[in-house]
């Protein structure tokens, strides 16, 4: 039974590193890569649950088309993780179901 869901990093060219926090776990990501890539490397699976049946999903297309990579990024719900670049100190959480409706971020 497969257990490890972490993506593996091949040798990469010299790039800056940033620290981000995903579901409370601090990980090192490559400067310029997407949050979705960092989440896959961290092995966080699923990265969201659906509003309709609460089933798990993970990044599917990596190019902004499927919207299955929606996560809560720096407090902003339903953000496309594959279209967002990592930034040092970023806080990323699983998007659970539909977003909370709050006054200030309509």
């Amino acid at each position: 039974m497969p257990t490890d869901s972490r993506f593996n990093r091949l040798p990469v060219s010299e790039k800056g590193l940033v620290s981000i926090c995903i579901e409370g776990q601090t990980i090192t990501a490559l400067e310029g890569e997407s949050v979705a890539a960092a989440v896959l490397q961290a092995g966080v699976r699923p990265s969201r649950t659906t509003p309709v049946t609460d089933s798990g999903r993970a990044p599917f297309c990596m190019m902004g088309v499927c919207f299955d990579c929606l996560m809560e990024i720096d407090g902003k719900p339903n953000t496309q993780a594959c279209m967002t670049e990592v930034r040092d100190g970023m806080v990323v959480n699983i998007q659970r179901g539909a977003r909370q409706v709050l006054g200030d971020d309509l």
Binding site: D4, S5, F7, L10, P11, Q41, G43
Partner: peptide
């Protein structure tokens, strides 16, 4: 993922 991050699936 290969092009942007050098990542390969588990």
């Amino acid at each position: 993922l290969l092009k942007t991050s050098g990542l390969t699936p588990p």
